[in-house]
Design a protein around this nucleic acid. Structure first.
Length: 309
DNA sequence: TCTGGGGTCCTAGGACCC
DNA sequence: TCTGGGGTCCTAGGACCC
């Protein structure tokens, strides 16, 4: 039973395998080295929380050796003792802000959390405080989750130089909207809330969102909404550093009948055909002319691309 | 330590409905 | 017509993770 948690990390539930955790860890590490020629670190414990931290601690302790290939095993019953001396930030969910708040009341290590009255943690941090108290003891009964649904899709870019030109911003928005639409269709998903993200030149960041009447996977609709949101917040004297488009919440593509069904279907088929061309021959194979009205044609790639239709 | 490009989850306020 | 309670949805932002 495997839960992938990022591009290069996973939880494995080995409880039904008779072999010892240590032997399994050694053989997994060997296989990865032999077959992929890659280093990896492994933590073995009775739950995900402790296994993850065991990996981090093991990896850090072998940092001088390159590359780190640690195996760190925490025996049942040793969880709290293992965690006690570690800084609070070793715990999932404690970042710089929360660590700062804990420091203020004299909590520096996970052991300190453990000694602190649970009720007071709850008073200060709410539900999160209760969680903290439990996890500081090394208790975690969260299950291994083998599949997860996509909950949102977003794309964003940071400009090399801050942008004030609304046409340039719209052009970027258009490309991002296409990218988001493409991913939706690829995963056979639709979303109903379009979110615009803007980072101004001074690094302040805002988001603006709009919920559609019905879910979509259509570039045009995503672009229209994000463009509308941008128009509401854009100031000619406020340079933009980053712009992004996202969609949420996500549902399975249950194409519902609507008054515009015929148009919708045609549009959808067209987009899927374009997706297929892009996938097969590259991004500039085909460009939608009608949507580029009033928007400068993208410069990159077009010049040397004789496949453009 | 910071930046960048993804994500997730939580909170809080407001609108709206019954 | 007004008040109050409860629930849901939407919006915006923040903290955190890899």
């Amino acid at each position: 039973v495997v839960e992938q948690i990022s591009i290069d990390e996973a939880f494995l539930d080995l409880s039904d395998i008779p072999e010892s955790g240590e032997n399994l860890a050694i053989s997994i590490q060997e296989h990865i080295r032999d077959q992929l020629n890659l280093p990896c670190s492994i933590g073995v414990a009775t739950n995900k929380l402790v296994a993850k931290i065991a990996t981090d601690v093991g990896k850090a302790s072998k940092r001088s050796v390159i590359p780190p290939c640690a195996i760190n095993i925490i025996l049942p019953g040793q969880e709290a003792d293992f965690l006690a001396p570690l800084p609070t930030t070793a715990l999932w969910g404690i970042g710089p802000k929360t660590a700062g708040r804990l420091e203020e009341i004299g909590i520096h290590t996970i052991g300190d959390i453990n000694r602190w009255p649970r009720d007071d943690l709850i008073k200060r941090f709410g539900k999160f405080g209760a969680d903290l108290a439990t996890r500081a003891q090394g208790i975690d009964d969260s299950p291994i989750i083998t599949s997860h649904e996509t909950k949102s899709i977003s794309l964003e870019v940071t400009f090399a130089r801050d942008v004030t030109d609304i046409n340039a911003l719209n052009e970027t928005l258009h490309k991002l909207s296409e990218g988001v639409g493409r991913r939706l269709r690829k995963e056979n998903l639709t979303g109903s809330t379009i979110r615009l993200k803007l980072r101004w030149f001074d690094f302040t960041t805002i988001t603006r969102q709009k919920t559609l009447v019905s879910p979509t996977d259509n570039d045009k609709e995503i672009f229209a909404s994000s463009k509308e949101l941008l128009a509401k917040v854009w100031h000619s004297n406020k340079p933009v550093r980053l712009i992004g488009v996202g969609i949420t919440p996500i549902g399975k593509n249950t194409r519902q009948l609507s008054l515009w069904e015929a148009t919708n279907k045609k549009d959808h088929n067209l987009l899927e055909a374009v997706d297929a061309l892009h996938e097969r021959y590259g991004k500039h194979t085909i460009i939608r002319g009608s949507e580029l009205k009033g928007i400068k044609q993208p410069q990159s790639g077009v010049k040397n691309d004789n496949k453009k239709i």
